[in-house]
Design a protein around this nucleic acid. Structure first.
Lengths: 115, 115
DNA sequence: CTGAAATGATACGGCTCCGAAACGAATTTT
DNA sequence: AAAATTCGTTTCGGAGCCGTATCATTTCAG
């Protein structure tokens, strides 16, 4: 189960994955994917400020990414009831399916790699 | 040497790789990475038309990606002497180093994955 | 040799994103 | 309760990329 990858395999995997992302028009930016996966992989809570700090980007970048992905319904904003200045970012069913599809695509492309 | 990846590992790899790309400001789009890796992984010749057809994008997309990556000096345009309508895209030393860094980053992140 | 076809580049209007700065709302401090 | 701080959003000017349509150059066909 160890992940043992040769350079040529890594590049082919990178190429094939990005190719499919472009082809199927799942065109999230690197920033958006990073934000999305942070929310789905790391334990909550996730605030705008926290995400911005973690990714070394400005707050407006996070706000706009949440706008875009909120419109896609793969994320959800909710006001923090405890401190109403905060916005907490939550997962959605649609988002979980989207992330699952990302993983499936990656696994499929990994399986196709030449030994 | 088989590439055996679990879904959680695939997502973490995707996250960590994109995170580093954002953090270091290597922010090529999915389209640009796909074009770049096509040129570095597949045998020449590479024409604008051929790349556009292979990636299901329009010719201006390829032209502009070549503009950008040409400015970065990771690719090089040359007129085809045999048919001067064609533009052939060539690798550069700087581009080869860039691609090598992509592979290194991917391998480093793969090695860090939890078993 | 002239018109048609092929190739890549460009013009255009539209959209998204960027960082910096300013802003409103909520909270904390004094 | 007034002032300062914190948090997320919005605004602004600027930049990049998108697809469609058009253009200039080169080649090919009749």
């Amino acid at each position: 189960m160890a992940v043992d990858l040769r350079p040529s395999q890594a590049l082919k995997l990178l190429h094939d994955f990005n190719f499919e992302m472009v082809r199927d028009d799942h065109d999230l930016s690197a920033r958006q994917i990073t934000i999305l996966l942070t929310i789905y992989l790391e334990p909550p809570p996730h605030t705008v400020r926290g995400l911005a700090a973690k990714l070394n980007v400005t707050k407006p970048v996070v706000t706009r990414a949440l706008d875009t992905m909120g419109r896609m319904e793969i994320l959800q904003r909710r006001r923090d009831p405890a401190d109403r200045r905060n916005v907490l970012v939550h997962r959605t069913v649609k988002g979980a399916l989207y992330v699952e599809r990302l993983a499936d695509l990656m696994l499929a492309k990994a399986k196709e790699l030449p030994l």
